[in-house]
Design a protein around this nucleic acid. Structure first.
Lengths: 340, 340
DNA sequence: CGCTTTTGTGAAATCGTTTTCACAACTTTT
DNA sequence: AAAAGTTGTGAAAACGATTTCACAAAAGCG
């Protein structure tokens, strides 16, 4: 067996199988109009030579790359990592490869990354949320690249979306806490700048409170990055308010876990003095004490469903353009009726 | 501005800039031998047409794809997600794209994925651990594709590696617990099948005990998947032993967190009755109560350093082939001297 | 001022596939 | 048995860039 430089090419297979390159190409692409005998010869020749097709050449000629791009804020947050895991798993079942980029919540950087993805010839792009540069979307449209929003269910003029309604989720949290009899609220939100999801949760939460006659301008809202420390710091701030909240909604389980840690340190009883609701239902929600009441986000499903959309034929896609997933309230031990 | 089908190509830019395709190519690739005036015309023309190069064509002709592949067990485990995050961040600074595949700890699937990566023309591949099919490595070598092992520091005949010594880590845990005066041990290991890292930690742990005169065959070792539930179940099993261990080493913080949960449920005092050591230093290590003593794994650094290796020139690479990172013991509250 | 070297540019070949088109050899239909 | 349709195959063009080579013009040299 030759140890040639780059390895065998299609024409070498053709020579060995004693047929034309066209025929080899047909066999490799499953074209049925090839004589069984020839087909076998080709397959054997390809195997013998350890032939691996050149994807670039194939992509160039066929204009199909079987490449998908995803631009997410970070892989350091489990909800995105899990989403990508689901996405990748489904795509790779169909031999579609996933290029992934993290933007660190920076939509300008996101644009640069989208540009590179376009250059690479991705056929679809998965985005997170609905806040993007207009140029980013324009570029994708101009190049006829499918794109899918995740983590949001807002109806967009273009592009598909698979996610949930962040405002509704915020309202759900508010409703639940109101029903427990609370009237003093606080919120620890994620950084809302360029983050429609964090903003949506906050707005939904405040709106629902307002609807129940609570002046939302008097509800303290502090923002923190998705880190334990920030959760702790934010909770400290909330507890310094004149009227301490008895119920705090956090934009992420991480923030909530930090908040609980602060309460431990400050000897504030949870849920005795303050009820805490998280968001995401990460694994850590079962590790805090008390265990965390939270809203479950279907991260893996979003990835899978986004993949299904991408893999669907253009005609099937029409039915799948908009997909709102349910979020569930998971009641554990960090919430309780207000104490009189 | 035309809304043509696929968008402008290089030759269109050439026409608009009134020069040859060759010159456009030179400008786009930063070749310095181009007159300033022409260069400006080309840049302007490209911008005006919204020109985006066709990566496949470029890759085909130049045989450089600027594509890297990574095959990891899963993104659902923070240590891998974080590693990939670091890897991607560094690579994208240099406009290198990362294709990622998850193999679910299955080395046969890993081979299939490697094959697809080769077909896509990746120039390097990042692998996890040192357990791989020989065919996988042979294929990469035959195609002259660089590969980097992570999470291991074993000296391999070929390929580079960046990681740490899992056995040494296991010994460190054992030493620490021995020094606290413990003599009854147990271990909750990750699934060791096809997982050299999990096996290494276990072997190192048991070897160090043996060296201190403890018959390692009498140290109960149970294996669990990296899930809270498995940690709980495994701890239950250990605590049913005739001689209850007073010190348990876990192959992952997740398992350790599960173990602690079991102890809570079973009213076993940690660290009063049993000391627990985790592995990874995930965020959750600060969330358990008591907080978890653990070994810190430099996940992000591994990704970054792997990227540096990949981005280095062939001559620089020689110095970087082997990189062992330190792991640190982080002492928190889940461990204490043995009780008499 | 002629001779070599450098600089800037374009024409054409090339990368490794897929696709289109043509065509021979069989089948089926009428 | 002639006309029409299938089937299986190959030759050659095409995909969109980069690279090689050639060559004119400008610059440097003695």
């Amino acid at each position: 067996m030759d140890l040639e430089d780059g390895g065998a090419k299609l024409i070498d297979v053709a020579r060995l199988a004693n047929c034309s390159p066209a025929t080899v190409s047909r066999v490799l692409n499953g074209n049925p109009n090839v004589n069984k005998a020839v087909r076998d010869r080709v397959v054997r020749a390809a195997r013998e030579l350890g032939y691996v097709p050149n994807g670039s050449a194939r992509a160039l000629r066929s204009t199909r790359t079987r490449l998908v791009g995803a631009i997410i804020p970070t892989l350091d947050h489990a909800i995105y990592a899990t989403m990508v895991d689901g996405l990748q798993a489904r795509l790779s079942e169909k031999d579609v490869s996933l290029i992934i980029n993290t933007s660190g919540y920076d939509i300008d950087l996101e644009y640069e990354q989208a540009r590179l993805l376009v250059e690479r010839g991705v056929e679809s792009v998965v985005l997170v949320g609905s806040t993007h540069l207009p140029t980013t979307l324009a570029m994708l449209e101009q190049k006829r690249i499918e794109y899918v929003y995740t983590y949001t269910s807002k109806a967009m003029e273009s592009g598909a979306s698979v996610g949930f309604d962040n405002e509704k989720a915020g309202r759900t949290a508010a409703r639940y806490l109101l029903d427990l009899g609370h009237s003093q609220f606080g919120m620890i939100a994620g950084i809302t700048r360029d983050n429609d999801r964090a903003a949506g949760r906050r707005d939904g939460f405040l709106n629902e409170l307002e609807r129940s006659g609570i002046d939302h301008t008097r509800v303290p809202v502090v923002e923190g990055a998705y880190r334990l420390d920030d959760g702790r710091r934010c909770m400290l701030r909330l507890m310094e308010e004149d009227r301490r909240p008895t119920a705090v909604f956090c934009g992420s389980d991480i923030l909530a876990a930090g908040a609980i840690k602060h309460c431990h340190a400050a000897r504030i009883a949870v849920p005795g003095e303050v009820s805490i609701v998280g968001f995401d239902n990460l694994e850590i929600a079962e590790l805090t004490s008390p265990e965390l009441t939270t809203l479950e986000v279907p991260a893996r499903d979003m990835g899978r469903i986004a993949a299904d959309y991408i893999l669907a034929s253009p005609s099937q896609r029409l039915h799948l353009r908009q997909r709102e997933l349910a979020i569930r309230l998971i009641v554990r031990e960090s919430t309780a009726p207000v104490r009189r």
